[in-house]
Design a protein around this nucleic acid. Structure first.
Lengths: 334, 334
DNA sequence: CTGTTAGCGCTTTCAT
DNA sequence: ATGAAAGCGCTAACAG
C-alpha cells in the first residue's frame, strides 16, 4: 500500500542502494540509471520515509525550539528568524511553548531529545542547574537564545537588557533630567524585569543621581499598569520629569496618564522605553524607545546551532547583539 | 554508547518486549517486574527513541502546521491555540512558514508528509487545485485553518470575514451613517482583502446605500496606508462621515489623519475596523472594532484534527467561529 | 558505478 | 505475564 524504496528498486530494475543514492543525490550513479530510477519514482509516486531515514542515518534534520510563548510579539519575531535560517539549512522546527515554567521546560526538552532532534534552541527564563542537568543528557548541541545563563557555559546569543535600559536612562540624563522614574516589570523576571531595573540604577549611579524608591513602580508589562504607575508618580509632591518604562505598552499607558492629567509629553514629562514595537510609531507623540534586533537573535542563534550540528569550528559561541535607541518625540530637554 | 531498550532488558533481566510494555504503560506486566524495569531505566538513564518507535508503530505523535507567517500577531495567536491543544493530546508541532506562497506551501506539505506527521494543519491563502492534489497524496488527515477553500471539500475551521465586515459596516449604518468609506486591504487577498470588501458592499446594498467608488481606498493593512487613505477621503468635497478599515492599524492611521486635520473622532467622523488587537484599547479614543477568536480557531482546528487522527466519528467537519463587535469610543450617531 | 548485507531501536504478533 | 522473532523503510559499509 505505501510504496517503499524496495518497490522503486524493483520497478526500476536496480537495487535499493542505487535508489537510495539517487534520492540522496549521490553522484556515483550513471545518468541513465538515475533517469530510470526517477521515472520509477514518478510512476509509483514514491515519497521517502524520513523516519526510516532518521533511524538509519541518525539524523532527523529537525531541531527543537523551546520558547516561552509564541503569541508574544517579540518572541514570534525571534521564531521567524529561527525558522527562516532553519529552512535555509534544510532543517525543520519542532516548536514547544513552555511559558518560562521550569517543569514544562524540562519536560519538553526531554520530549524533544526523545524525538532525536539534531539540535536544540532554548528560550526560557533563567537557566538553572536543573536545566544544565537536562542539557547534559543531550548528545546534540544546544544553544540558548535570548535567555540569561548564570553559569554561562552554554553557547548563547542574547541582547544586553541591562545595557539597553542603561542607554535609555542615559538619554534622559543627557537631556538634563535628574528626577527620573521607572516603571519596571516584575523584578523576579531576570531579563525584562531585573536586568532593566539594574540598568536604570546603573545609569543613575554613574550620573550621581541618588536613588529614590518612590520613583520606581513595578508593573506587569501591560498598558493598564503603565497608567497606574504614572498616576502614582503624578500624585507625588516632587514628581519625576522623565519616566523610563520597561516596555512600550507601559510607556504608552504612562503617556496617556500624563495627557489625562492635562500635561504634555515631552514638554512636561519625558517618556522612554524599550521594545520598539509597531505601536511605538503609532501613538502621538511617537515613542522614543530602544530597539532590539529580535529577528536577528533568532537568526543568529539558529545559524550558530547549524554550525555546531555540523561540527564546524566556531570562532565564537557567545553573541550579544546590539540594540539601538530610536529617538522619536517623547523625550525633551529639561 | 546510547542506551537502548535492549540494554535495559539485559540490565533488568527481562526481554525487550517487557521493557517496551512498561515504557508504553501496558497493564500486562507484574508490578514487581515493572519496578525492576523502572529501576534499570533509571540506572542506565534510558531515553526511548521516538524515531525508532515511529518507524515500528507508524505513528510519530507529531503534526505538521503550515502557517503564512508566525511573526504576524493574529497568526501567532492561532498558533498558540494549536500548540496548547496539541500538547494536551500529546502531540508535537512542526511549524513551517510559507508566506501564502503556493510553491512554498506545496513544498512544505510534502516535507511534512515525508516526516510522517500524523496529521496536517494548513493555513495559507486560497486552497487551489494544486493544493488539493498535494493533499490527496496524503494518507493522514488534514484540516484547514483560517483558510478559504473554494472546493469546500476538506475539513476546516474558519471565521466569516465577510460577515465580520458586514457587521461592522452595519453598525455604522445603524448609527445613521450613509456616507461610509472603506479602507480595504488588497483585493487579491481572499480573506482579509476581498471578503471584507464584499461585506462592506453587502451592507451598503442591503441598506440601499449606493456604492461610491470614491469611498473605497486600497491600503496595505499598515498604519501609514490608513493615514494616506484617510487623507484622500478628507480631501473629497463630499467626504464620508464614517470609515470602515479592514484592520486596526489602518483604522488608527485614519484616526490620526482625522485628528491632524483638526477634526474629532467620533464627533466628526466615525471609525470602525476589525481585529481587536491590543492596540485597539491603547489609542485615544479607544477603537470600536470586531474581534475574531484567533486562539479558538487554532484550538478548535487542532481538536478537530486529533479526532480525525483518532478516527473518531465527527459530527462536524466545518466550523465557522463567531466574531463579536466590540463597541468602544470611535463610532458616534449622526 | 552498482549490489549485498547488516543493522538503526522499537513495536507487535504469536507462542508459551 | 513474559519471551522470541519478524519486521518498519532506509542508510552505509563493503564487495565487486
Amino acid at each position: 500500500m505505501t510504496v517503499t524504496i524496495y518497490d522503486v528498486a524493483r520497478e526500476a530494475g536496480v537495487s535499493m542502494a542505487t535508489v537510495s543514492r539517487v534520492v540522496n543525490n549521490n553522484p556515483n550513479v550513471k545518468p541513465q540509471t538515475r533517469k530510470k530510477v526517477f521515472e520509477a519514482i514518478e510512476r509509483l509516486g514514491y515519497r521517502p520515509n524520513a523516519v526510516a531515514r532518521g533511524l538509519a542515518s541518525k539524523k532527523t534534520t529537525t531541531v527543537g525550539v523551546v520558547i516561552p510563548d509564541i503569541s508574544n510579539m517579540n518572541l514570534a519575531e525571534i521564531a521567524r528568524g529561527i525558522e527562516d535560517i532553519a529552512t535555509m539549512y534544510h532543517y525543520n522546527i519542532i516548536l514547544c511553548n513552555a511559558d518560562k515554567k521550569k517543569d514544562k521546560e524540562i519536560r519538553v526538552i526531554n520530549t524533544l531529545l526523545e524525538k532525536q532532534v539534531d539540535g536544540l534552541l532554548f528560550m526560557g527564563g533563567t537557566v538553572t542547574d536543573e536545566h544544565i542537568q537536562a542539557f547534559k543528557t543531550s548528545s546534540v548541541p544546544i544553544v540558548l537564545c535570548a535567555t540569561t545563563d548564570d553559569n554561562n557555559t552554554i553557547p548563547a546569543v542574547d541582547i544586553d537588557h541591562q545595557q539597553a535600559a542603561y542607554d535609555a536612562v542615559k538619554l534622559l540624563v543627557d537631556s538634563g533630567h535628574r528626577k527620573i522614574g521607572m516603571i519596571s516589570g516584575t523584578l523576579q523576571d531576570p531579563s525584562l524585569g531585573f536586568a532593566r531595573y539594574q540598568g536604570y540604577k546603573q545609569a543613575l549611579e554613574e550620573s550621581a543621581i541618588p536613588f529614590n524608591e518612590n520613583y520606581v513602580r513595578v508593573g506587569n508589562y501591560k498598558y493598564e499598569s503603565g497608567i497606574e504607575a504614572m498616576k502614582y508618580f503624578l500624585a507625588l509632591e516632587d514628581r519625576p520629569t522623565a519616566v523610563f518604562a520597561a516596555t512600550d505598552e507601559m510607556a504608552i499607558g504612562a503617556i496617556h496618564a500624563i495627557q489625562d492629567a492635562g500635561l504634555k509629553v515631552p514638554e512636561d514629562i519625558s517618556v522612554i522605553s524599550v521594545d520598539n514595537s509597531r505601536m511605538a510609531s503609532m501613538v502621538r507623540p511617537q515613542l522614543t524607545t530602544v530597539a532590539q534586533p529580535m529577528y536577528d537573535i533568532g537568526a543568529v542563534s539558529m545559524r550558530l546551532l547549524t554550525k555546531l550540528m555540523n561540527k564546524e569550528t566556531t570562532d565564537q559561541t557567545k553573541y550579544v547583539l546590539p540594540h539601538t535607541v530610536i529617538e522619536r518625540q517623547t523625550v525633551g530637554q529639561v
